[in-house]
Amino acid sequence: MYKIAASLVLLSIVAASWAYTDCGSEVGTISDVEVSDCVEGKRCILKRNTNVTLKIIFTPKGDSDTLKAVVHGEILGVPMPFDLPNPDGCKDSGVTCPLKAGQTYTYINALPISPHYPRVTVDVKWELQLSNDEDAACAKIPAKIA
């Protein structure tokens, strides 16, 4: 019985060890963040020349006609913008605008990892901004480009 309990605790630590941090969701709350192929280790491994799928479940505190995704990679505290093919959070992301306060939404988007990106340790900061440019969701995900 002890071994089973210890195994479950260890498994939960491994599964949660890459966990995101809320980096300033000003006008919303995050329920969950999932990153494809990110299941173990302290950092998500982002393989160059692939796409990573990100899912953020969030609830805005205010209404909004728009939702914009803004993504940065922070290397040694310096933000470097990631270009998203689709920064419009109301288009092809699973979210339909206008957004209503208190309703939970599931946002899904892909981040292309360019083959030209350097192999570095990076914190990915993914913001979902309402029409007033305030963050309904801001998730920081520890990662490494490999």
Rank of each mutant, 00 (worst) to 15 (best):
I30N: 01
T21I: 09
K42N: 07
G41L: 02
K42Y: 09
S36C: 08
K55A: 13
T59Y: 00
T29I: 15
L46N: 11
V27T: 13
G24P: 04
R43S: 13
K47D: 11
K61Y: 05
A15W: 02
N51T: 15
F58Y: 13
V27M: 04
E26C: 05
V35I: 13
L46S: 11
G24A: 10
L46F: 12
C38K: 03
T53S: 02
S17A: 14
R48T: 11
A15H: 04
K55Q: 11
E26Y: 03
V39I: 06
A19T: 09
T53L: 14
V27G: 02
E34A: 07
I13A: 04
S12Y: 10
A19N: 14
A15K: 01
A19H: 05
D32F: 05
K47S: 08
G41N: 04
S25N: 09
T50C: 13
I30D: 00
V35A: 13
F58G: 02
D32N: 04
C38M: 12
V39C: 05
N51Q: 10
P60V: 12
P60L: 06
S17H: 09
T21R: 11
R43W: 06
S36Y: 07
E34F: 11
V27L: 08
S25I: 15
Y20A: 05
A16C: 07
I56P: 00
T29K: 02
S36A: 04
T53E: 12
W18N: 08
V27K: 04
T29Q: 01
C38G: 03
I56W: 00
E34Y: 04
G41K: 00
Y20Q: 13
A19S: 13
N49S: 15
E34H: 06
V39R: 02
V39N: 01
E34V: 09
D32C: 02
S31V: 14
I13R: 08
E34P: 03
D32G: 01
N51K: 12
R48W: 08
K47P: 02
K61A: 07
I57T: 15
L54T: 08
L46E: 03
E40S: 06
K47M: 12
C23Y: 04
S12A: 15
T21W: 12
R43E: 14
T50P: 01
C23V: 06
D22T: 10
F58W: 01
R43T: 12
T21E: 10
V33F: 00
E34N: 07
S31H: 12
P60G: 06
T21N: 13
L46Y: 13
K55S: 11
R48F: 09
P60R: 03
G62L: 11
D22G: 14
R43N: 14
S36K: 02
V14M: 06
C44N: 08
C38P: 00
C23Q: 06
V35K: 02
G24I: 10
T59V: 15
I13N: 03
T29L: 02
V52W: 01
C44T: 12
A16G: 06
A19Y: 06
K55V: 12
S12F: 08
P60D: 04
V52L: 09
T53P: 05
G41M: 05
N51A: 14
N51P: 00
C23H: 08
I30F: 01
I30L: 08
T53G: 10
T53D: 11
